[in-house]
Design a protein around this nucleic acid. Structure first.
Length: 564
RNA sequence: CGGGGCAUGGCGCAGCCUGGUAGCGCAUCUGCUUUGGGAGCAGAGGGUCGCGUGUUCGAAUCACGCUGCCCCGACCA
């Protein structure tokens, strides 16, 4: 491709709308342009990257035995009503009517459609196992689209769905996808980690996420420094603390705390640390509100809390009226002492002594509270988000926290969809059985952003070679004025293309600095500079995007290097 | 959805407080010079100042309403 014919415009300045580096660089390098909130046009250079991602994903999916198909982006409401998700999915689902006032949605995912395909097509267990996939546009009406293509409303996803007769079959299909995903992210040249996760909206049991490790990631990942445990913070578990509780030394005191509405206020007034306080959260329950007791510096974990007996799911905080009726007090002055609600204590609380908490009387708190004296010994559960240093569930080592960008997610769905949509198959005994399903997603567009988050410097993108829009960029110096350069450039351009390389020839009549700056901004891995000076000595100048210095090399040596 | 901010040429911004018919940098086009790290000079094109209503002799500027976008938050009891 000749630069002069590629229609690429790069930006010297950073557009104000872009917050994170991948978004800024994608705009500056001309990969994407914004149409509306969460909607982007992929420009030619961006599409080149997308196609490279897709090609690798497709190859590995095919290698794993999955079959590509293509389902409609627009789906009829009736299918979603069959599984009950028409109501469950909420405002994330973009709904619309056709001219006959029939209701549709723009597919945010395709479990319903594929299950419909399966129940029509699959009759016999002999057709199993089978795994269908597609690479296609989805729409999710996100509350707050952000970070460019990382959380956009319209995006491209590879979604796959497996069908098996029994759990052993599902385990095997799931494992195949796990291995295929690992192969995909490895081939893409990304640093990633597989973590345990919550199945959330999609449903089902076993589920793992593939995260590209990056500080700007939206998700927190907890992992062990000693074994292979790794989990999304949403589901990361921990054990009761091993530390023994110190003996009580302080007297129980009730003190007035005017104006104190939060843990921070309390700590400021008493000159203590949040870890010496207890906070009490009131959530909605299945029969009356429930109190959650946590150390002041810890956070309640919704996934864990909503699984507890008596707690309403999804987890909902009680409103101030409910709190008043249940405790006679208000948020900001709540505590376990004298609380007659159903109470859950977090593990970490059991190790505390001489702590402070609300007195269930507006703007009064207790200090010097102790278990076994002022409160009964607590039965504790795992209630909170883990923090760095917590014990690993397996018992070995402590947890560390990293940030990641979720680029893949695999689930065992079981029979959630096959049962509600009656997708059954005849087994060896001629009996109808609901198929066991798995579903497997990769965010194709998100991978592009994640790759940039992980691979850039102050000059621009540094594409992992498998993703690069071009393999090599040719930068001729004085192309328009030097016949020697012109001849050598055209010959090299033709030869590299004949070798099957994607070559960008910067044939613009601009000063070299402009070409260098653009080559670095768009992140082409290999750069070859052709100049009269070098050519006179029979040499080209080569530099990899990651390198700081360029080197002069013989033409043959450059060709050899680029063929690897 | 709650809070905050912004909206002026393709991009980044100033002007608004104190009302008088729009300016800077980048980009674009033309010419000349320049050509190994985002060139220089000269010239040119391009904006009904997000939309609406109002105040006023007069509104980018003041008031009200709306829309769009961005950021933060959505357990912090």
């Amino acid at each position: 491709m000749r630069f002069s014919e590629f229609g690429l415009t790069t930006l010297k300045e950073v557009p104000a709308e872009a917050e994170i580096v991948s978004h800024q660089l994608m705009l500056r390098a001309g990969l994407i342009r914004r149409l509306a909130s969460g909607l982007f046009t992929w420009m030619p250079i961006g599409v080149r990257v997308l196609r490279k991602v897709e090609a690798i994903v497709r190859e590995e999916m095919n290698r794993a035995g999955a079959l590509e198909l293509l389902m409609p982006a627009v789906q009829p409401a009736e299918l979603w009503q069959e599984t009950g998700r028409w109501n469950q999915y909420g405002p994330l689902l973009l709904r619309m009517f056709d001219r006959h006032q029939r209701e549709f949605c723009f597919g945010p995912t395709h479990e319903e459609v594929i299950t419909d395909v399966a129940r029509r097509e699959l009759r016999s267990y002999k057709q199993l196992p089978i795994n269908f996939y597609q690479i296609q546009t989805k729409f999710r009406d996100e509350i707050r689209p952000r970070f460019g293509v990382m959380r956009s409303r319209e995006f491209i996803m590879k979604d796959a769905y497996s069908f098996d007769l029994d759990q052993a079959g599902l385990d095997s299909s799931y494992q195949k996808m796990h291995d295929a995903y690992s192969a995909i992210f490895t081939r893409l040249g990304l640093k990633f980690r597989v973590v345990w996760a919550d199945s959330g909206e999609i449903g089902g049991s076993k589920s793992q996420e593939f995260h590209v490790i990056a500080d700007s990631g939206e998700d927190a990942i907890a992992y062990s420094d000693e074994d292979d445990y790794a989990s999304n913070i949403e589901t990361a578990r921990t054990l009761p603390t091993a530390t023994k509780r110190p003996a009580a030394t302080a007297k129980l005191q009730k003190i007035p705390t005017p104006g104190v509405r939060s843990i921070d206020d309390l700590c400021n007034m008493l000159k203590i640390e949040p870890a010496q306080t207890i906070k009490t959260l009131i959530v909605k329950g299945t029969d009356g509100p429930v109190a959650m007791i946590l150390r002041g510096d810890h956070e309640l974990n919704a996934v864990k809390a909503q699984k507890l007996a008596g707690v309403a799911s999804p987890l909902t905080m009680a409103d101030s009226e409910t709190i008043r009726q249940a405790t006679g007090s208000e948020a900001g002055s709540l505590g376990p002492v004298g609380c007659n609600l159903r109470v859950y204590y977090d593990h970490a609380v059991a190790a505390m002594a001489d702590f402070s908490c609300g007195a269930n009387e507006i703007e009064y708190h207790f200090t010097g509270v102790n278990f076994g004296r002022d409160l009964p010994e607590p039965a504790t559960v795992d209630l909170r988000n883990v923090v760095a240093g917590d014990p690993v569930p397996g018992g070995k080592g402590t947890l560390k926290i990293a940030r990641g960008i979720e680029v893949g997610h695999i689930f065992q769905l079981g029979t959630k969809y096959s049962e509600s949509m009656r997708a059954t198959i005849q087994d060896q005994d001629g009996k109808d059985r609901a198929m066991l399903m798995g579903c497997y997603g990769i965010g194709i567009t998100r991978i592009v952003g994640a790759a940039i988050e992980q691979n850039h410097d102050s000059n621009g993108i540094i594409w992992p070679e498998p993703l690069a829009p071009f393999d090599v960029v040719l930068v001729p110096i004085n192309l328009q004025r030097s016949e020697v350069v012109q001849t050598a450039t055209e010959e090299l351009y033709a030869e590299l293309q004949a070798l099957g390389l994607d070559v960008l020839l910067d044939d613009r009549d601009v000063r070299p600095g402009v070409k260098f700056a653009d080559a670095e901004l768009i992140g082409i891995p290999h750069r070859v500079v052709l100049s009269e000076r070098g050519l006179a000595g029979g040499e080209l100048e080569y530099r990899h995007r990651r390198d700081l210095e360029s080197r002069n090399m013989k033409r043959a040596a450059v060709l050899e290097l680029l063929q690897k």
